[in-house]
Design a protein around this nucleic acid. Structure first.
Length: 366
RNA sequence: GUGGGUGUAGCUCAACGGUUAGAGCACUGGGUUGUGGCCCCAGAGGCUGUGGGUUCGAGUCCCAUCACUCACC
């Protein structure tokens, strides 16, 4: 994998870059739609490609439990399995073990947990997570980490961060293929000293990119931004910086402003299925009765398939009836909005006026 | 026509003769951050079919009446 910083914005920490994997190049800053179970829910790969998604997320935890990584490997790897020939980043499963499964034990060797599907017990070790990701054949693999909840006290955050670093070392050593990049995940909760220490240790191990984990896990937004502001300047400039699981459109703008190159978040896709649609003026709930007779598209001037062909009234009807098309059209719109936002930010950086663009972005909001 | 049963929120149903008649769904609004097509929070909504009666007090007991429903002529 290669990463090049093409341009820096002199009005902020924002930077314009290009990531090159075995499956193509990715313009950064980039937003990666989440495709947990080998599909971005409700969309076909064709539709994703039309939306101009250059990289999507797959998930070790889910694919490990179902249908199983060996099976996917036998069927030609994740790209072939799901017929997606652009890039894929796989999450290590660390987050899901902590958010979905019933944890039985966190031990030095790994985590014993119970499947959220059938209650079966499994041990995931750092080596397991990397082996599974190798079988999936993703372009970028994430190291296996412990996602600390919020709030957490400093002593536990330290203990957890230290363990994540030891796991990161084992992950790095477990990866043999040079076709797969590996990112380390910076932990340390909301404590700048721990974030800094973690980052230093991870850099010593040496990764192809560095991610910030355990943010947007319930902490106040100002606190997340504060941690970002203090940590981002310490991130190695030559490597991609990935803010995991974030976020709202505002979060993306602030992230880019502070120098983040990569984001992923379920928000545009999950919220689409729950009827929340993003526009440049803020979000709307399509189920609201005020849209029952509204002939306008979700956002006037939006060039997505949903906005070019359908009214808010129709989309509201579909959503209230729980028609499958509602999920698809809403998802198309929200991803178009997110990916369009990233395109706009990349252009602003290229033109050296990101700060000005950011002002206008906020001015347009309610 | 005769006998039985049931009438409570938009729907399906709770509520010992005793606080301000509740729940689920539907409806209205809010939430959702490395995905369980969910879930969570809040709100609105009632002449308890109608009219009498008994009682300190009736959704509840009694009488009449209307509607629906089942069985039998």
């Amino acid at each position: 994998m290669e990463f090049h910083v093409l341009q820096r914005d002199h009005t902020s920490q924002a930077r314009r870059g290009r990531l090159i994997t075995c499956h193509g190049s990715i313009e950064t800053p980039v937003f990666m739609p989440v495709g947990t179970q080998a599909t971005v829910k409700s969309l076909s790969p064709d539709e994703l490609a039309i939306l101009n998604a250059e990289i999507i997320l797959g998930n070790t935890y889910h694919l490990f439990l179902r249908p199983g990584a060996e099976r996917i490997q036998r069927l030609g790897g994740l790209h072939r399995f799901m017929n997606w020939n652009r890039s894929i980043l796989t999450d290590s499963g660390g987050f899901q073990v902590f958010s979905l499964a019933r944890i039985n034990q966190i031990q030095e060797d790994g985590v014993v947990f119970q499947s959220h599907i059938d209650g079966s017990r499994h041990l995931i070790r750092p080596e397991t997570a990397m082996e599974v990701q190798a079988q999936l054949g993703s372009d970028i693999a994430m190291s296996f980490d412990e996602c600390t909840p919020y709030p957490v006290d400093h002593p536990y955050a330290l203990e957890s961060m230290k363990r994540t670093v030891r796991w990161a070392r084992r992950c790095r050593e477990a990866v043999k293929s040079d076709r797969q990049a590996v990112f380390g995940i910076v932990q340390g909760s909301v404590f700048p000293d721990l974030r800094r220490a973690c980052l230093e240790e991870l850099q010593e191990i040496g990764f192809d990119g560095y991610a910030l984990g355990s943010l947007s896990v319930g902490e106040p937004k100002e606190l997340m931004l504060e941690v970002l502001e203090r940590t981002m300047p310490q991130m190695p400039a030559a490597k991609p910086r990935y803010l995991m699981g974030v976020g709202t459109p505002e979060d993306l703008v602030e992230g880019v402003h502070l120098g983040v190159d990569m984001f992923d978040c379920v928000m545009p896709t999950r919220n689409a299925r729950n009827g929340m649609l993003f526009t440049s003026r803020g979000s709307i709930q399509i189920k609201n009765s005020q849209f029952a007779d509204d002939p306008d598209p979700i956002e006037i001037g939006c060039s997505c398939y949903a906005c070019r062909h359908f009214s808010r009234a129709y989309l509201r009807h579909l959503f209230i009836c729980k028609e499958l098309l509602a999920y698809r059209l809403n998802t198309i719109h929200n991803l178009h909005h997110y990916l369009g936002l990233m395109t706009a930010m990349r252009q602003a950086i290229e033109q050296g006026r990101f700060a000005e663009w950011r002002e206008r972005f906020y001015a347009g909001r309610r």
